[in-house]
Amino acid sequence: MKVDNKSLLLYLVTDRSWLREESLISQVEKCLINGVTFLQLREKNLDDDSFLKLAVEMKELSRRYNVPFVINDNIDIALKSNADGVHIGQDDMPIEEAKKIIGGDKILGVSVGTVDEAILAEKLGADYLGVGAIFSTSTKKDARNISYEALKEICESVSIPVVAIGGINKDNIEELRGSGIDGVAVISAILAEKDIAKAANELKDICNKIF
C-alpha cells in the first residue's frame, strides 16, 4: 500500500511505561485528537488474546480519527485485528516473507540503519522506512545512533517515505531540518510528558514548520 507522506508527519509508537492512572487507549486518543498522524502499537509482553483485544480497540480508534494504524513485529495480530499494516525490524521476519503474508493492500514499514538496508528494503516491498536511533534513547538502549549525514543519505537513496526515530523531542527536532525525512516517530516525547495533549499539539506545530 502506498503511504501518504503527510501521514508520517507525527508518528506515535505506544509504550506502557507512563500509563500512570490512565489507560493506553485513553492516552492514545488524546494524542490522535491533538495531532498524531500515524499510530504503531508496540507490545512485547502481552499474551496473544490481550494483544489482539487491544489491537482491535486501537484499530477502531485510529479509524475514527482517520489515522493509519500498524502493529509492531506481530503479523498474526496485525492480520487478525485488520490493522492497516505491520512494522518490522532487521532482526524480525525477512522483508519479502512479511510482504507476501500481508499482501499488497497492507502497509509494510521497515526499520533500517544504513543506505544498503534502505535500498534493499524498498526493493523487497517496504512502503516506508523508520531510521534510527537518531539520538540516544532510553526506550531502546542497544540502538546504534545514526548521524544527520547518514540520515540524509538514506533519504536520498530511496523513493519511499522516511520517518526518523530515536530520542527525538521538541528540543532537538530542529536538528533534523533539511534531512529529507517526512516526519518523526516518537514515544517519550509525548507519552512521558505530564500533559500528553499539549505535548502532541506542540510537536505537531513544530513538525508542520520543519517538514
Score class of each variant (00 low, 15 high):
K2D: 09
N5V: 11
V13W: 12
T14V: 02
D15T: 04
L19A: 06
S26W: 02
V36M: 03
Q40N: 07
L41C: 04
L41P: 06
R42P: 06
N45F: 10
L46G: 05
L46C: 05
D47L: 03
D47T: 04
D47M: 02
F51H: 12
K53E: 05
A55H: 07
A55Y: 08
V56F: 01
V70T: 03
A78H: 08
S81Q: 11
N82Y: 13
N82C: 05
M93F: 08
I95S: 01
E97A: 01
I102N: 09
G103A: 09
G104Q: 13
D105L: 11
D105V: 07
K106G: 02
V115M: 00
K123D: 02
G132C: 05
A133Y: 09
A133L: 07
I134Y: 11
F135I: 10
S138L: 09
K140D: 11
K140N: 13
E149W: 07
E149C: 00
S159V: 03
V162A: 06
I165V: 14
G166R: 14
G166S: 11
G167E: 13
E175N: 12
G180K: 11
I181W: 10
V184C: 12
A185Q: 08
V186F: 10
V186A: 12
A192Y: 03
E193I: 12
K194C: 13
A197D: 12
N201I: 01
N201R: 15
N201L: 11
I206K: 15
I210D: 01
F211M: 02
